[in-house]
Amino acid sequence: MGTNAKTVLVVDDDQLVLAMYKIAFEDHGYRVLLAENGNVALKRLDAEPVDVVLLDVLMPEKEGLETLLEIRQRFADIAVFVMSGGGTRGKHDFLTVAEKFGATGVIKKPVTPREVIKIIDDLPDQRSAVSGGGVG
């Protein structure tokens, strides 16, 4: 894993989705942390630095929009992408609300791990920007 490898926190209550993303992201060179709901995600963020959070909306205990608000209040610089199928039956636009609440971006499901990797790879590297990366 390179020194510029991103640390990605994946937050989803579906254990299979977490396992799939972990394998795909680690194959790509990311360091991966997992959390099954917003409460666990916030504990992970308190414990170690994270570059990107992938946040599902529909989770038990603490759902994604409330978690996003708390992340924004406490970790303003972390890139947070909110993922949702959009409330397939209820027609409620959770992603529009996520944008209003300060999500870096929103991702409409279904989406493949490869597509998510491209979104993350396209992010500017916060650490090299802060340390003045590229200085000769």
Partner: peptide, 25 residues
């Protein structure tokens, strides 16, 4: 929905219950 009824939930104590119920229709 299959029987032509609306649905409701009482006692929503957190936003997780709210958004999950809304997503379910």
């Amino acid at each position: 929905r299959a029987n032509g009824h609306k649905s409701f939930v009482l006692g929503v104590t957190n936003t997780s219950r709210a958004v999950n119920a809304m997503a379910a229709g």
